[in-house]
Nucleic acid binder design. Structure first.
Lengths: 216, 216
DNA sequence: TGTACATCAGTGAACGCGCGTTCACTGATGTAC
DNA sequence: TGTACATCAGTGAACGCGCGTTCACTGATGTAC
């Protein structure tokens, strides 16, 4: 795809075009292969033009990462569906959505997790990241609340465990490049089994909460 | 540290010096900041000299990653201690060793997991990686064998889950740069709790196998 | 023990390249009156 | 409706830089006899 369609001296939509070009470059060569100059070239614009929209290369990457987190959030909350049809099923859908995002949007994923952008220098990025994680945390809270008080796990810990497991699987087994490790099953199956086993340790999963009954 | 101590025209130990310089550069600026020219400079040698020892930049990085896997293997098997004092305790020590390695050798860790080196182009690297993972797999086999047959989990799956969880935690919460996420507990605690809960789902952990008794 | 010679591991200069960023500029757009 | 003008988003040339890699070379080392 070319991001250089423009009509006249002014591009009209350069900011968007640069984001798109950056994604294309990352997809092709990884985050280290991205350069401002080449993004400008892809957008059909002089190498100085990007600096009208972004302070420097990192700012452009941070913008891409920010949008990645927003898309991830959208995808996650779509999968969660407010905990329907039942919490455990929805929780697994959340995990599948995470892997699905890493797989279908590897360029976003790389911008979010492989660029070493200092988060504290980009508060909006940190906020978007926190928001995505917050969705996972919220789901964990719902699940935890279903448990009898004595064995209720801290939801924050649950969320961190599932995030780390998902991210580990995604970055080891779902990467788009030739550094991907091979797997004797699908990454989705691996994650689903892991999450189910993890939930089992709380007495969750199994058939207990399936079907939406809050019977316990 | 300077890797440039040499006596005379011949360096005497340039290969080692270049590996050391590469680690130093990665530690300082990340894998993307490493260049052959600068490694040569650090080693006190002309920019052409590295090419006597490594075909190109990737070959040097691959050598560093290879040594990283070897060190990781050494660290893991040291922690496992043949399953003593008991399998569950030793298994947790394995996890702690993994995080410890990521933390104390971030440059190795980055060379191993953040460089996008195509594994199939470096069979020795793939072998070293497989060997490290094999240690984890072996431990999982021992653990699994302790379980009554009907609920025995596939050890390969166990190993993959624990690897992914460890790697996820390491790369999200133990990275040395400012992209590290903050955590309301130590990464080690998070991993240990996760592994324990995971093992609980098999009926392992708890006090069952603690103390080395093969009583069940 | 001495010497001729092969081999090895460096040098240093050069190649072509592309980068990030700045600068003074200019063409296009839109708004006030 | 027309015009003057401010603002904006581009240009293009230039800066200094460092890179990976190749090449013919040379100094050092070690070995055969």
């Amino acid at each position: 795809m070319s991001w250089g369609e423009r009509r006249g001296y002014h591009h009209g939509n350069l900011r968007e075009a640069l984001v798109g070009a950056t994604l294309e470059l990352i997809a092709e060569k990884g985050p280290a292969g991205f350069t401002v100059a080449e993004a400008a070239r892809l957008a059909g614009v002089s190498p100085a033009a990007p600096y009208r929209h972004f302070r420097d290369a990192e700012a452009l990457l941070a913008e891409v990462a920010l949008r990645g987190f927003e898309q991830l959030s959208a995808s996650l909350s779509g999968a969660w569906r407010d905990g329907r049809p039942d919490l455990v099923t929805a929780f697994e859908a959340l995990g599948r959505a995470y892997l699905g995002f890493a797989r279908s949007e590897p360029a976003y994923y790389a911008a979010m997790f492989e660029t070493r952008i200092p988060v504290e220098a980009h508060p909006d990025l940190a906020a978007a990241s926190d928001h995505a994680f917050g969705l996972l945390r919220h789901a964990a809270e719902q699940l935890s609340a279903q448990l009898p008080k004595p064995e209720r796990p801290p939801p924050l810990m649950m969320a961190l465990h599932v995030w780390a497991l998902s991210h580990g699987i995604a970055s080891l087994f779902c990467r788009p490049d030739r550094a991907r490790r091979s797997l004797p099953m699908s990454a989705e199956e691996l994650l689903e089994a892991g999450v189910l086993l993890y939930l089992q340790s709380f007495g969750l999963a199994g058939s207990k909460l399936r079907g939406g009954a809050k019977s316990s």
